[in-house]
C-alpha cells in the first residue's frame, strides 16, 4: 500500500510557492514584503489590513500539539484567539515570516522564519467597514 502522506500542510507556505498579489504581480512566498500585503488590500476593495498584536502564546490544553495565540486586532484592540500548529507562519510587520517554531517551519515548508513572540504585530485582514 502507498504510504499515507503526512497531515496536509498548506502548500502556499512552501518555499518557492507562487503568490498572486491583488495587483496581478506574482511573487515567491519567501520574497513577500509588508508593502505587498498593504497594497493588495488597498486594491482588493472590501478588505482591510489590520495590525494584530500577539499578546499571549500558550500550548493548547484541549488540542495537544497546537498553540493558542491571543491577538489584539486593529484600532479597536479587539481580542481574537486562534489555535494553530506551531509551524504556522505569520507575517510580522517590518520583519517578515515568523512562527512559534521556526525549526518546524523550516522542516515542513523550507521557509525561513523568525521566532514569533509576544509583542509582534502581525498582518491580518478583515472586512472593510462601510463609511
Amino acid at each position: 500500500p502507498a504510504p499515507t502522506p503526512a497531515p496536509s500542510n498548506p502548500s502556499h507556505f512552501m518555499k518557492g510557492a507562487i503568490i498572486q498579489l491583488a495587483t496581478g504581480e506574482l511573487k515567491r512566498v519567501e520574497d513577500l514584503q509588508t508593502q505587498d500585503f498593504v497594497r493588495s488590500a488597498e486594491v482588493s476593495g472590501g478588505l482591510k489590513i489590520d495590525s494584530s498584536m500577539v499578546v499571549d502564546i500558550r500550548t493548547s490544553q484541549q488540542r495537544p500539539g497546537l498553540v493558542v495565540l491571543h491577538f489584539t486586532v486593529g484600532e479597536q484592540q479587539s481580542k481574537v484567539t486562534i489555535d494553530v500548529p506551531p509551524e504556522h507562519p505569520f507575517f510580522v510587520f517590518g520583519q517578515g515570516w515568523s512562527s512559534c517554531s521556526p525549526e518546524r517551519t523550516a522542516q515542513l515548508y523550507g521557509l525561513a522564519c523568525h521566532h514569533l513572540q509576544v509583542g509582534d504585530v502581525c498582518v491580518s485582514i478583515t472586512l472593510q467597514q462601510p463609511p
Binding site: S11, Q20, F71, K79
Partner: peptide, 25 residues
C-alpha cells in the same frame, strides 16, 4: 515547443489570517 508546466498560484489573502474582531464589549 515545450508546454510550460502548470504551477499552482495561490492568492495573497490565503497567507494571512482573517481575524474578524468580535464586538464583545
Amino acid at each position: 515547443n515545450v508546454e510550460p508546466r502548470s504551477v499552482p498560484v495561490f492568492p495573497w489573502h490565503s497567507l494571512v489570517p482573517f481575524l474578524a474582531p468580535t464586538q464583545s464589549d
